[in-house]
Amino acid sequence: MKRFFFLIFLFISIFSFSEKIDIYNKIFYKPGLHMELYTDSMFLNFEYTFLGKYSYMSSSELLNYVWSQDRKLIGGQMYVESNYYTHAISSSHAVGLLQLKPIVAQDFGIHNLFNPIDNLTGAAAYHSYLYKIFQSEKQQIAAYYQGPTSVLKRGINSSGLNYYKKVKKAQKFYKNTEIYSPFLIGINGKVSLNYFELNTYSGLAYKNFEVYSTQNLSFIKENYSTKFNKLNITYGLMYFPKSDFSIGSSYGNNLNLYLRLGYPWSQNILSLNNLKFMNSYYLNIEYKNGIWIKSYIDDKFIFITGFSVYDIKFGIILNSDYRIGIYMSL
């Protein structure tokens, strides 16, 4: 059934694929409904994106890749760390099912932390390393959260002890469940007195691949009547071999190559038109203190910056037409 679902989605993607390159960052949003509104002196822009979860595989099937640790321990820890979600990202930039940080993954030769098998393999290797140091399951589990250097120097602190208790409780009650990966659906558009544009899109992540689909419609109002302006349809696929690198291509009006560089909290996305010259660029940077920056470059330039309060973003916009606007996202 899962393979059938994926094949249906892949079939849909053959008919349309987004050229609005910031969609390739949205797959890393937290599950739930997200809204963006921004305006300047000419256009009102709106966007609604829903991030959901689909069943990727069973946890017992995934845990077959674990040999060096108690499988129920790792199964319980997945619940504590990510609630069985492959694309979970913490505020401290730990990633995936078992919330490994990129620097730890690099030490164990793990390439894609969003791939559940890679993430699990890295976590199991890290557990083995910690047990080799401490020769104690309690210190091993606490050090996974607290950090091995901290445990060696100061022993298990209150947060490490609390984490150990959570994991052991989850281990006790662990049962086979589903592992989930993200899908998204959304709609965006912009409105002025004489112009209306609407885009719908969808996408999902599957192993080291991502597929998306988008339909773009625009209308122009002239002489008190509304006329159809254009319809854009393209298609393609993104390959995701590393946590900080993806490559993809699309074909519609032009053949485009896409490069996504960096982690979701500090990411660059480039689009090369006909594989020769850059026709669009997207930059997203999110700092731990709540300050963030977005930048879009295609036929025009848009720069957005602001601050976050919990999961709500407030900002200002400057574009190449010298218009200043306000931005809000939640």
Rank of each mutant, 00 (worst) to 15 (best):
Y251C: 14
N229W: 12
F219D: 02
L193N: 12
F240L: 06
L261N: 01
N274C: 12
V211K: 01
S249K: 00
S213H: 05
N274P: 10
N254H: 10
S271C: 14
E197Y: 15
L217V: 13
L255H: 00
N232G: 11
E210H: 07
A205Q: 09
Y224P: 07
I247A: 03
G262M: 03
N223D: 13
S218L: 07
R260L: 08
K190D: 07
L217Q: 07
N268Q: 13
L272W: 05
N254I: 09
Y239W: 11
N274Y: 08
I233Q: 02
D244V: 05
L198D: 04
N273G: 12
W265K: 08
T200A: 07
M238T: 11
N268Y: 15
T234K: 01
R260K: 15
L198Y: 14
K190T: 09
L204R: 04
Y251D: 03
Y235H: 13
F245Q: 05
K242V: 03
S192Q: 09
L204V: 09
D244T: 10
F219K: 06
S249A: 13
S266C: 13
D244K: 10
V191H: 12
D244M: 08
G262S: 05
L272H: 03
F240Q: 05
L257C: 01
I233V: 12
K221H: 10
Y251W: 09
N253W: 12
L193K: 12
S243N: 06
N216C: 14
S266F: 10
N268G: 07
Y195I: 04
L257R: 00
L255I: 13
E197T: 11
Q215R: 15
S213F: 09
E197K: 14
L270G: 00
G248V: 08
F219Y: 15
F209K: 06
N254V: 11
K207Y: 05
M238Y: 03
P264W: 01
N223M: 09
S246W: 03
N256K: 04
V211I: 12
G248F: 01
L255Q: 01
T234W: 04
Y235A: 14
Q215T: 15
L272E: 04
S271F: 05
N229S: 12
F240Y: 11
N256V: 13
G262C: 06
